[in-house]
Design a protein around this nucleic acid. Sequence first.
DNA 1: ACAATACCTTACAATTTTGTAAAGTATATT
DNA 2: AATATACTTTACAAAATTGTAAGGTATTGT
Lengths: 176, 176
Amino acid sequence: MRITAVEEYGLRCLLNLARGGIDKQMSISEIAENEGLSVPYASKLLSILRKQGLVTASRGRSGGFHISRLPEQITLYEVLTALGGPLIDPNHCSKYSGQLEQCVHIDYCTVHDVLGGLAGYIQTFLTGTTIKEIIDGLPVDFRKHPEAPFEISDKALEGELSTIEHTEKEEMKSKE
Amino acid sequence: MRITAVEEYGLRCLLNLARGGIDKQMSISEIAENEGLSVPYASKLLSILRKQGLVTASRGRSGGFHISRLPEQITLYEVLTALGGPLIDPNHCSKYSGQLEQCVHIDYCTVHDVLGGLAGYIQTFLTGTTIKEIIDGLPVDFRKHPEAPFEISDKALEGELSTIEHTEKEEMKSKE
DNA sequence: ACAATACCTTACAATTTTGTAAAGTATATT
DNA sequence: AATATACTTTACAAAATTGTAAGGTATTGT
């Protein structure tokens, strides 16, 4: 369960436009430059944002992109779902049915219940956070999210559990 | 941002064992059968859970798996990070550096800040939910998570925003 | 008009994740 | 000891995601 590349980079592209306010227009190459992305890739990301209605494009010699609404009127939830789809796939139960045609837990599924609860919980955070708040920087309004315990710095994360390959808890138990 | 297949199926495999309590032993084929998974795939998932210390295996004719700790002593957080790694990749900033060697936002990154806050927030939910609670079924203790607004049923999700391909908000604007 | 500029679309290559296959190792029963 | 059973490991095939490439379309300034 993680932020995808498209979500991460797409959000950054949108923030570029948002920082300039609603009238600020930028070209793909400017945005790509700012974010260290290739022009074709930034182009693809902006195209997704445009199709989802978050940015507006104009073509031609003096064309470019601008944000469709005020940064305080766009939530993080909108941006992430625009870029990566909903938190829970609408076809979750048919997608994760294993080898069978229909999931064995179709009638009563505690997993689905708890993941649905989690999705709703996350949605609360995301809809409560606007693009403007992100631009203005931390602390993001933690009063709204009292449970978010701290800002996770890159340094702090260094010590955290790594990906599976890198943390075989077993590995070298002395073979006798 | 979504639950991965390994997280979903791996969790289900663990729940199989958890339902029987700490002494219940099951073979891969039993679990695979119960979950509608192929035996090799269930095998792979259980292998991950074993390496992360959540289940214990014994080989030979009367072998099988059992859960390593009481279901009330295992949190959803442990299970999901065991199966899918941490919520934020420890190398997030170097991984998402675009075309450049180093991310342009390395000094000051509002995106990283807000996503770190989100990760902490999610972690609170996950560490506050035990495997036992999942087994015992909903309502998962929403007193602990008052913000989780509702259980998201499969039906309710049907109406939600679909994946990008399926919801081109543009699509058929009358060409003049 | 025409050319320069900037977005748009489609196809495809590279990478990662998902899932399968097969041969190997350990243990209990006979 | 032999054998059946059940986990283990490694390699690989399939599918999804990520990122690139190239040619097309629209607009504006000259």
